[in-house]
C-alpha cells in the first residue's frame, strides 16, 4: 500500500515537466525515506536523479519498497489535469498494476481520480559515487536558463570554464562565437540572486547544449541552480526543491578536440 499526499501539487507537475523531455519511461522508486527516480536519457549521455523526501509530504505511507514504471509523457498528461493549487495524492495497492492520482481542489469541492497503468521497465540503477568536485557554481536558475538558451542559438556545444573570478560559458557556431562570463557576485538584495563560485582548481569542460536546455526545464522548481564540475566527471546540474529534496541532472562531457581540423 502506497499513499503519498502532496499539498503543493504544482511541485509534482513541475517535476514532470522537467523530466519528461529527457526521459520517456522511468521507474519511480518509493521507500520509507522518500519518492525517487533515476533514469538515463535514451542516448545514455545524461542521467536524472530525483528525490522527494518523505518529510516533504503531508502524508507518506509506503509499507514496502515499490518500484513503479511509468511513461512520463502519460504521467505528465495526467498531472496536467491537476490545478496548480490542487493537492495531489498518489496511491497504489500492492501488486496492482495501476497508480491512482487524486487531485483535490484547495477548497475540497472538487476531487478528481486519475488511474494510470503501470509498465514494466527494465532499467539499470546506477550507483552514483559521492565525489569532490573541482568547482561548484551556484547561480540564479533563470540566469542559467537564459545563458543556455542564448548560447544554443549560436552553437551546439558549450565550454564551461570555471576560474576563481568567474564561470565562463562559451560556444562557437557557424555564425560566430559567444562568451558569457558570470562573475562571483554576492552583494545582492536577495540571496537567491547571488552567483557563488567555490573552486579548488580551474575546470574547463565541453557539453552538448541541447541537454542543458532540457535540464533548464526544471527552472520553475528552484530559484537557484548549482553546477558541480570536475574534469573527469559528468557535470551535475542540481535544482533544489524546497524542503523536499532535489532534482539532479548528470551530463557526460564531450571529449575535447585536440585537433580542431579533424572535424569537418
Amino acid at each position: 500500500m502506497l499513499e503519498l499526499r502532496l499539498v503543493q501539487g504544482s511541485l509534482l507537475k513541475k517535476v514532470l515537466e522537467a523530466v519528461k523531455d529527457l526521459v520517456n519511461d522511468a521507474n519511480f522508486d518509493c521507500s520509507a525515506t522518500g519518492f525517487s527516480l533515476q533514469a538515463m536519457d535514451s542516448s545514455h549521455v545524461a542521467l536524472v536523479a530525483l528525490l522527494l523526501r518523505s518529510e516533504g509530504f503531508e502524508h507518506y505511507r509506503c509499507d514496502r519498497n515499490i518500484s513503479m514504471g511509468m511513461n512520463l509523457g502519460n504521467m505528465a498528461k495526467m498531472l496536467k489535469c491537476a490545478g496548480n493549487d490542487d493537492i495531489i495524492t498518489l496511491k497504489a495497492d500492492d501488486g496492482s498494476d495501476v497508480v491512482t492520482f487524486m487531485f483535490e481542489s484547495p477548497t475540497q469541492d472538487k476531487i478528481a481520480d486519475f488511474e494510470m497503468k503501470l509498465m514494466d521497465i527494465d532499467s539499470e540503477h546506477l550507483g552514483i559515487p559521492e565525489a569532490e568536485y573541482h568547482a561548484i557554481v551556484r547561480m540564479p536558475s533563470s540566469e542559467f536558463a537564459r545563458i543556455c538558451k542564448d548560447l544554443s542559438s549560436i552553437g551546439d556545444t558549450v565550454v564551461i570554464s570555471v576560474t576563481k573570478e568567474g564561470v565562463k560559458f562559451s560556444t562557437r557556431g557557424d555564425i560566430g562565437t559567444a562568451n558569457i562570463v558570470c562573475r562571483q557576485n554576492t552583494t545582492v538584495d536577495k540571496p537567491e540572486e547571488a552567483t557563488v563560485i567555490e573552486m579548488n582548481e580551474p575546470v574547463s569542460l565541453t557539453f552538448a547544449l541541447r541537454y542543458f536546455n532540457s535540464f533548464t526545464k526544471a527552472t520553475p522548481l528552484s530559484n537557484t541552480v548549482t553546477l558541480s564540475l570536475s574534469s573527469e566527471l559528468p557535470v551535475v546540474v542540481e535544482y533544489k526543491i524546497a524542503e523536499m529534496g532535489y532534482i539532479r541532472f548528470y551530463l557526460a562531457p564531450k571529449i575535447e578536440d585536440d585537433d580542431e581540423d579533424a572535424k569537418p
Binding site: S43, H44, L47, H125, P129, P234, P253, K254, D257
Partner: peptide, 21 residues
Amino acid sequence: NKKAVNKDPKQGNILSFFKKS
C-alpha cells in the same frame, strides 16, 4: 566505445562514469 549510440563521436557516456548497482 559505447553500448548506446551517440550522434556525436565526442560525446561521453554517462555509463562510463557510474557503475551499475
